[in-house]
């Protein structure tokens, strides 16, 4: 994975607000427009008052435009807890057959995906689940990039959402020298005494990422606002 520059944090919410509004105007009526109309909590809201959703996408590659989303796993959460019963999993039929390599990685076979939702249908299910809630992901460039590419394909409009990236947050709140793989989800979780989970199930990874955020906030101690943790 190539790390994006980690320095493009917003000091305020103005730039994000402009991007969100611009995207809203481009969105045709339908699921994406409804997503934008739901808005998002202002960045000055105490995080304790903000409903969140942890999201993990399983994809068949890392290139936003050339690869497909195979599965989205998500679970609702708050700053200090995960609502374990809200887990959802959406499986998406990719435009092309899977590459052999990705089958190995994701333990998902073509057969398992046969008959799953096509991309447009999947987005129409997924977007309402994200509406109004900042999205928590580990290395959120993947989630934001793939959703943006998918929305552009399906709706002809970009996807802009407030993302909380647990990887970026770790670097920002707890900067230190790390091994090359020191920012991986499992490594960071271990550092917080969180249990080891099997990797590469969208729902489990979403849960794992959500738990990491809860642990990070607990370790940070201070009560942050949404703006303190957002990465846009």
């Amino acid at each position: 994975m190539i790390l994006q520059p980690l320095s493009n944090w917003l000091s305020g919410s103005g730039r994000f607000a402009r991007r969100f509004e611009a995207a809203r105007r481009l969105a045709p009526d339908g699921p994406l427009r409804a997503f934008y109309d739901a808005g998002y909590p202002t960045f000055s809201t105490p995080l304790a008052q903000v409903p969140l959703v942890a999201l993990d996408l399983e994809t068949d590659g890392l290139d936003f435009r050339g690869s497909a989303i195979l599965e989205a796993g998500l679970v609702e959460m708050a700053h200090d807890r995960i609502f374990a019963g809200t887990g959802k999993r959406i499986r998406i039929r990719p435009p092309e057959a899977l590459s052999e390599q990705s089958v190995v990685i994701h333990r998902i076979t073509d057969d398992a995906l046969a008959g799953e939702l096509d991309e447009a249908e999947a987005l129409s299910r997924l977007l309402p689940l994200l509406a109004g809630k900042p999205v928590v992901a580990h290395f959120s460039e993947i989630e934001s990039g793939f959703l943006d590419a998918a929305c552009r394909r399906v709706f002809g409009a970009p996807f802009v959402a407030p993302f909380i990236c647990t990887m970026a947050l770790e670097n920002r709140w707890f900067p230190r020298q790390r091994a090359a793989d020191g920012l991986r989800l499992a490594k960071l979780r271990a550092g917080y005494g969180l249990p080891a989970y099997r990797a590469h199930d969208g729902l489990v990874d979403a849960l794992a990422c959500g738990e990491l955020l809860v642990a990070q906030i607990a370790a940070h101690g201070n009560a942050p606002t949404l703006g303190d943790v957002i990465r846009s």
Binding site: V75, G87, K88, I90, L117, E121, R125, R198, D201
Partner: peptide
């Protein structure tokens, strides 16, 4: 099922 509304969150169920 295309969309699993109450999927088993494997890690939790397996642990229990």
């Amino acid at each position: 099922m295309a969309m699993d509304d109450a999927p088993e969150t494997a890690e939790i169920a397996d642990f229990l």
